[in-house]
Design a protein around this nucleic acid. Structure first.
Length: 203
DNA sequence: CGCCCGATGTGCT
DNA sequence: GCACATCGGGCGT
């Protein structure tokens, strides 16, 4: 098995970020996730991408957050441990990946919206049209590329045994390059939540 | 490039 | 019923 090691001299991608790092507001975790690695290991292959776009969703008050409906079967994971994967199905065909934040009992999560390929491109391209332009710049696209679906809902992202984790390879993001905008796709969400600057992008 | 629209399943009112 | 944290193709500019 060739694990397609990461950048020379950097083994940081093997070490998952620990749960305590996610035990704070999603509006803090979301910008801090920019520049971190999203790593997938499954079927004897390994692939990773650098996170370049995130969104924060937090609290039952946030009318853009699924937790506005309170604790339900669907939102249960968001009320759980920080560092857990909250993965849901939408538009009849797409999976979206979030990382749970905040202590148990408070619903919050960060949506991973885009990554840039770091290694394991062959693994990712086998699941995405190789010729497609912008083949990882969307929350459903990156889930398809990394073989992330509902089977991983509730998975612990703080251990490699899940086959999905987030790592810091010490290629620090330039914080000055972080930009904020309103979140995408909240077309019927009332103000002020619709326009909160809770989308974070790199470059 | 932009806008428009259909695909397609499910959670919640 | 309907909205939905989307995507890709089609067609007009």
């Amino acid at each position: 098995m060739n694990l397609n090691p990461g950048p020379a001299g950097s083994e940081g991608w093997r070490e998952p970020i620990q749960a305590s790092w996610f035990d704070r507001p999603a509006t803090e975790v979301a910008p801090d996730l920019l520049g971190k690695l999203l790593v997938r290991q499954v079927d004897g292959a390994c692939a990773a991408g650098r996170i370049v776009e995130t969104e924060a969703y937090q609290g039952e008050d946030d009318q853009g957050c699924h937790a506005k409906a309170g604790l339900t079967e669907r939102t249960r994971v968001m009320y759980g441990n920080p560092g857990t994967a909250y993965i849901y199905f939408t538009y009849g065909m797409h999976w979206l990946l979030n990382v749970v934040c905040m202590p148990v009992g408070f619903p919050a999560a960060v949506l991973i919206r885009a990554i840039q390929p770091i290694f394991g491109e062959e693994f990712m391209q086998a699941r995405r049209p190789a010729a497609a332009k912008g083949w990882l710049n969307g929350p459903a696209k990156l889930c398809q590329a990394l073989a992330v679906d509902g089977q991983l809902n509730g998975a612990n992202l703080c251990q490699t045994s899940s086959g999905l984790w987030i790592a810091d390879d010490s290629v620090a993001a330039n914080q000055s390059a972080v930009r904020t905008t309103p979140r995408i796709g909240l077309n019927t969400v009332p103000e002020p939540w619709r326009s909160l600057p809770w989308r974070y992008t790199l470059e």
